[in-house]
Design a protein around this nucleic acid. Structure first.
Length: 208
DNA sequence: AAGGGATTCAACCGCCTTTAT
DNA sequence: TATAAAGGCGGTTGAATCCCT
């Protein structure tokens, strides 16, 4: 049988996809509390969840685990992410291992939505500087303006400095100043999640 | 207040690796 | 050693939400 078909259970009408419901979360939490993690496919069946094992594993690791921390990436964590990404690239799970309670998925999302955007802005800015310096070179054949104009082939930690939230006094100008405020993630604090504390307290109330 | 573009992030997909038989 | 099953990982998507006009 084709390996792809083996992995792809989306053809099965019995398999649920999409956002998890509170009931599903509680079932998964209760089952793992009683039986532990592992062997996700059989766990999903045994728990009575119409989900793939992969889906259960992902939900548990990224959201339901009691030790998972979500939101409010601290400046220290951000700096660490930047340094580790500069070192290892997109090895999200490896990076996540150095940030207790953070998941690879969260770090990946954080990188793509927050940090990468600033890097692109900075690259654009450097490109502008570079272009300007070329013009200046033509106008006056001195080379003293070239320090900012080096192409950024890899990201290096010093370059990240100034992008750190919430220290938004960015040391390089943003192309669109309005977007420099995109990282005030305070709004996320009020996102309409039902907290894990709620779930765990409900679980306790269930007597498990 | 409403509409629409931008942003965020949970969840899925598909590939690769590891483990079990 | 070969094969199948499960786990792990990075990339991508799409719904929900935010924000601006």
């Amino acid at each position: 049988m084709d390996k792809k078909q083996l992995c792809n259970t989306s053809q099965d009408p019995e398999v649920r996809k999409g956002p998890w419901t509170m009931e599903e979360d509680l079932i998964l939490i209760n089952y793992i509390a009683n039986h532990g993690e592992g062997v996700w496919n059989s766990l999903a069946k045994a728990a009575g969840l119409k989900r793939t094992g992969k889906s259960c594993r992902l939900r548990w690791l990224n959201y339901l685990r009691p030790d998972v921390r979500r939101g409010n990436i601290t400046p220290e964590e951000q700096l660490l992410i930047m340094e580790l990404h500069a070192k290892w690239g997109n090895r999200w799970s490896k990076i996540a291992k150095h940030l207790p309670g953070r998941t690879d998925n969260e770090i990946k999302n954080y990188w793509r939505t927050r940090i990468q955007k600033h890097i692109k802005q900075a690259e654009n800015f450097q490109q502008q500087i570079s272009n300007n310096s070329e013009i200046n070179d033509h106008q006056a054949s001195t080379s003293h303006v070239s320090t900012m104009a080096e192409p950024m082939e890899t990201y290096s930690p010093p370059f990240y400095q100034g992008m750190l939230e919430p220290f938004s006094s960015i040391q390089f100008p943003t192309i669109n100043p309005d977007q420099s405020s995109c990282c005030t993630n305070d709004n996320n604090n009020s996102i309409n999640y039902w907290s894990m504390e709620d779930i765990w307290s409900m679980q306790l109330l269930n007597g498990d």
